[in-house]
Computed example of a mutant assay.
Amino acid sequence: MTAEDRTTAEHSTEGSYVHKGKPFDRDMTYIDDRITRDGRDGWPVEEGRYRLIAARACPWANRTLISRRLLGLEDAISVGMPGPTHDRRSWTFDLDEDGVDPVLGYERLQQAYFARFPDYPRGITVPAVVDIPSKAVVTNDFQQITLDFATEWTALHRDGAPDLYPEGQREEIDALNRWMLHRVNNGVYKVGFAGSQEDYEREYRELWAALDELEERLGDRRYLMGPSITEADVRLFPTLIRFDPVYFGHFKANRQPLATMPNLWNYTKDLFQTPGFGDTVDLTQIKTHYYFVHEDINPTQVVPLGPDMSHLLEAHDRDRLTTNTWGDGGTAPAAPPAAEVVDPAHTPLSVTGR
């Protein structure tokens, strides 16, 4: 087997995601180098040196796009966006002119991985941060990337950037994020890629028990940690925004639509209407990715037209709760750069700031 063929199905490469008789088990081994102020891993924070590769279709990548927007790192960290579909080798830059990333000169994200690890044996995943001078991948550790954006890149944050990872709440945020990762963020995949009826039913119940807990948690607080947005909200929103269009039907997580759960749904609408969240969402790319790439569970690759998601812009009731959205001294981010604006045809309506 050649290096080009080495992939793992649970990563972002086309192939077999469902294994009959087996539960879904995500490979959580990532390139764990970090970009830090002191450069202790050999990668110092440096404006303009790194390129974030983040497909809009991917929920793990969506987190990094949100964090980058909220913190105002657009000028410090450039972004490359692969298209919503890929083959078994890699995400590709098919949205760019001539199918080539204009900064890296690559057709495939795989090339950045192989530039550093010629025999890289795992999935070619997004998000990934690439060192522009060497054109080699630095890290694809999606859980650490956003934490480092919040804590290591502070010198390059915009004026008024929120503190997404406040020191006094870090222990609780970390615990909640670990729980959400296994029960919700990855929980939907455990349901959708279950290889047996027994596995499916167990994971289905686990997922819905977790969503019921979140519904209760959001009954007395505007955001997951209280009156202000934190890293926890950045991690939950990408799963919730994909739930009704994808996970409900495609992954058979169909106890009820999220839109029937008042706290979770109004929370989702609230964040969707918040600058930095909804303006990173491309619902067309999201649906195209899941329904086209997961041939195991959708062999026809037919992408559904529905559901109608225009109600994301309807009024929500979250402002009845104590609110300090951006934290003390924080402000909303400016509009996204023109080159990063989502095609209005790919969202329910134009997302406007407040």
Rank of each mutant, 00 (worst) to 15 (best):
M1R: 14
E10P: 12
S12R: 14
F24S: 01
D25E: 15
R26K: 14
D32Y: 12
D38R: 09
R49E: 08
R51S: 12
R56C: 04
C58Y: 02
P59I: 03
W60L: 03
I66M: 08
G72R: 06
S78Y: 10
G80K: 03
P82N: 08
R89F: 14
S90T: 08
W91P: 08
D96L: 14
D96P: 12
A112L: 09
Y113R: 06
A115T: 10
R116V: 03
S134M: 07
Q143A: 15
I145V: 04
I145R: 00
I145T: 00
T146I: 15
A150W: 09
A155G: 11
A161V: 01
D163Y: 01
E167C: 09
E167T: 15
R170A: 02
A175M: 13
A175Y: 13
R178M: 14
R183I: 07
V184N: 06
Y189E: 00
F193Y: 02
S196Q: 01
L211R: 01
R217S: 11
L218P: 00
L218S: 05
A232M: 07
R235H: 07
F243S: 00
F248P: 01
F248Q: 02
G249Q: 13
H250G: 01
A253Y: 02
A253F: 02
R255I: 01
L258K: 05
L258C: 03
P262M: 05
N263S: 10
T274W: 04
P275W: 04
G276N: 03
Y290V: 00
G306A: 05
E314F: 10
H316F: 08
T325Y: 13
G330D: 06
A334W: 11
P337R: 07
L349C: 12
